[in-house]
């Protein structure tokens, strides 16, 4: 796993990988590529990964990030794992609702709820 990405912190809670993007705004292609380069090996190396992405720090994102989340979700499902998202700012949650991706991803209000039964 690439732990060198300063834009993402990863910790394990009861064997759930909790990934926290640290940037307040994710919009630039370089940021998205850097996140992808960290997420993909992490998922490949852990068969059946349980991955929680905590968006506490994120206040703005673009449709390119939604594309990244779909690629991450595909990869997680290929490895027979599960992906959950939590702590999404209400303004960003609207983006998920407009695009109906709130029906694709498992979204939780806070980290504790997301970890329950995961």
């Amino acid at each position: 796993m690439d732990q060198s990405n300063p834009n993402l912190s990863i910790e394990y809670i009861d064997s759930v990988a909790v990934a926290v993007p640290t940037d307040a705004k994710i919009l630039d292609e370089d940021q998205i590529q850097a996140l992808e380069k960290t997420f993909m090996p992490l998922i490949e190396q852990t068969n059946g990964i349980r991955l929680l992405i905590d968006f506490s720090n994120v206040q703005f994102l673009t449709s390119s990030v939604l594309g990244l989340l779909i690629r991450i979700n595909r990869k997680v499902l290929q490895s027979e794992g599960r992906l959950r998202l939590c702590c999404i700012d209400p303004k960003i949650l609207e983006i998920f609702k407009i695009t109906r991706l709130d029906k694709v991803f498992e979204l939780y209000q806070d980290r504790q709820q997301a970890l329950e039964g995961f």
């Binding site: 449709s63 779909i70 407009i98």
Partner: peptide
Amino acid sequence: DPRQGENLYKTEGRGVLLIRA
């Protein structure tokens, strides 16, 4: 429409929808 059927799982095609919204 990126909200319909298989388009929902595509990695692109949501920009214009968001601008409209």
